[in-house]
Nucleic acid binder design. Structure first.
Lengths: 170, 170
DNA sequence: CATTCTATTGAGATCGAGTCTCATTATCAA
DNA sequence: TTGATAATGAGACTCGATCTCAATAGAATG
């Protein structure tokens, strides 16, 4: 396995406007198709929320999302954000990540390479890593159980390199 | 990989009284040591809760635990159960499992083989599976990041065989 | 464009898992 | 037994998430 493949990954699309627009269009289409399939509609608010998630370079909590959206659309309601996040989870565009202390955080999954998370219980830092081989064995296990996977969550809790250096024994 | 290794696993200790007592003693000691290290005390309630978790052959929610304990000790309080579960998580004896619809479930980790979970979003059923190869690649990734793992959670959300049979398309 | 049917929205009420408070009680070491 | 301190249970409280409902927006049709 190539160690180079295991690195902290953040979307850099926002820095290349042309590519960002293409990315947005393709993801919007995915969302719209999901909505269409269930007789639901693509509204201004739903698009704004998806856009905010795409522009974010880190995991967002509901409240961060709410405050950031409120700036450009003061009338937006918390309930709409909860409802939209749920829709986005259903169609696999968004996944919940590390809900320590009761506050869920979310990230966009679409068009990003598969990755899992290591969460430091001391400083709270979330490190992303990839392991294609793990995915392969996981897929095998899923198939063998006749299960159809919608999304998955693989979180390793522990202490990160920096915290270990700072205090070798907790 | 041997498919036989991937099967729903439940502790059968409860059916062999002698072994169960030994198991109980060894786990109680682990718990007591953890408490001692922090100047805390092993109380009747804490022992009852641990015992109930050990006797359970499946994942327990707080409420199930509460009701089952209430039968033999009507004065026990919910708060004590929350507090004790937290202590047991801290010393690695108990782990949270699949908190779909807001209700956390817990399982005893001690002396049980490593396993992960597949959670059906339709019927809520939790299927356990093992995949030693996945664990191996995971350990490699952890080591490469200089991380020290305390526990991990690997949950696959999707639809189980039975629900797929019942309603092929959600 | 007007019409109609349905989905969506935001505000605020509501729910409920989990936490906290506090007076009382249990644990344990000396 | 005693004294210091931790633990308990009841119920109040927190606060993230959900629900309700009247008003509004979207899409399809003529």
């Amino acid at each position: 396995m190539n160690p180079k493949a295991e690195v902290i990954l953040f979307p850099k699309h926002a820095r290349q406007p042309r590519q960002f627009r293409q990315w947005l269009a393709s993801i919007l289409q995915t969302f719209q198709e999901h909505l269409g399939r269930q007789g639901l509609k693509l509204t201004r608010q739903r698009e704004e929320i998806l856009r905010a998630l795409m522009a974010a370079e880190r995991h967002l909590g509901i409240d961060e999302l709410y405050l950031s959206l409120k700036r450009q659309d003061p009338s937006i309601g918390r309930a709409t954000i909860f409802r939209t996040i749920k829709l986005l989870q259903e169609c696999g565009l968004v996944a919940e990540v590390g809900s320590s202390n009761g506050r869920s955080k979310f990230e966009l999954k679409a068009d990003r390479p598969h990755h899992d998370h290591m969460i430091c219980v001391e400083c709270g830092r979330i490190t992303e890593f990839q392991s294609p081989m793990m995915e392969r064995f996981q897929d095998g296990a899923i198939r063998r159980h006749g299960f159809v996977a919608l999304w998955h969550r693989h979180e390793i809790f522990g202490r990160c390199r920096d915290c270990l250096k700072r205090r070798p024994r907790g």
